[in-house]
Nucleic acid binder design. Structure first.
Lengths: 125, 125
DNA sequence: ATTGATTGATTACATATGTAATACTTTATT
DNA sequence: AATAAAGTATTACATATGTAATCAATCAAT
C-alpha cells in the first residue's frame, strides 16, 4: 500500500506551506504563496481541493472558513519521493547519486565537515 | 533554454536502454525492455515516437528499419532531473538531502569509506 | 430582508502521460 | 504480381496536471 498519495509539483508547494505551519485558511496559504509564485488564488484553491481529495491534507471548519492541515508528514513524503526518484534515475541505488553529486556540487568546508561527522557517526553504529 | 526535454517515467526506461547501447532498432528496444516491463510493443513504439518528437532521441534508416539513438546524454538528463528534484523537494539545496539520507540509508562500511574519501578530496580543492 | 462580497464547489480546458489500437507502407513470400 | 507480414504513422482514450472561471452558498453591510 502506497502510504502517501502522488503529489504534483504545484501541489508540493502547497504542502510545503502547510508543513511549515498549520492549520491555515485558504487565504493564508494564498498569502504565503504570493511571495514566490504568481498563481491565481483560484488556482491555489483548486490545489487545496485536489490535495483534500487525495487525502494529503484535510480541514476543519474554523469559525466561518476552512483551516487546512496536512495528514501526511513531510518526512513520509520526502522519503517516498526520494525513493521513487532514485528508482527512476539511479535504479534505486543511493550511493551512485551520492558519488555523482558529491563530485558535482559546491559544498562549503563547513558542509563537508558536517557530512563527515554524520558519516563518522554512522561508522560507529 | 532548457537543454533537455521533459522525459517521463516510462520514457526514461526507454532512454536507459538506448544510453546503455545504441543505435538499436525498435525491436531491439522492445526486447531489452521485455525483461523488466510488461509493456506492449505498441506502447514502446509510442514512447520511441514521443522521444523523437521531444528530440531526446533520433534515428537513422539502417537498412529497412530505423535505428534509434539518444541525442541527449545520460549525464545531462540525470543532472537536470536531479536539479529539478532537488528544487522541488528540498528547495534546491543539496545538503539537506544528503543529511537526511545519510541518516536514513544503510550504507556499508566500504561505502562510508568511499564517501569520506570523496569528501576529503573536496576539502583539498 | 436584499444585496454585495467572500468562500467553497463544480466545471472547464489544454497539455502530458500511460497504454495501446488502427491505418497505412514497405518488404517478404508464394 | 498478389498477399501476408512487419514496420511506421496516426488516432484513441482515460487519468493527471497546470491553470483557472463560473456557479452556489454564506456572511456582512445597508
Amino acid at each position: 500500500m502506497s502510504q502517501v498519495p502522488q503529489i504534483s509539483d504545484a501541489e508540493w508547494e502547497v504542502m510545503k506551506v502547510l508543513w511549515s505551519s498549520s492549520p491555515r485558511t485558504a487565504n493564508e496559504v494564498v498569502e504565503a504563496l504570493e511571495a514566490h509564485t504568481d498563481w491565481n488564488p483560484k488556482t491555489i484553491r483548486t490545489l487545496l481541493s485536489r490535495l483534500v481529495q487525495k487525502q494529503a491534507i484535510s480541514y476543519s471548519q474554523e469559525g466561518k472558513v476552512y483551516a487546512y492541515f496536512p495528514v501526511v508528514s513531510e518526512d513520509e513524503c520526502v522519503k517516498s519521493e526520494t525513493a521513487s526518484f532514485l528508482k527512476r534515475i539511479y535504479g534505486g541505488a543511493f550511493k551512485p547519486l551520492l558519488v555523482n553529486f558529491l563530485k558535482e556540487e559546491k559544498l562549503s568546508p563547513e558542509d563537508i565537515k558536517e557530512l563527515k561527522v554524520i558519516l563518522d557517526d554512522k561508522s560507529k553504529e
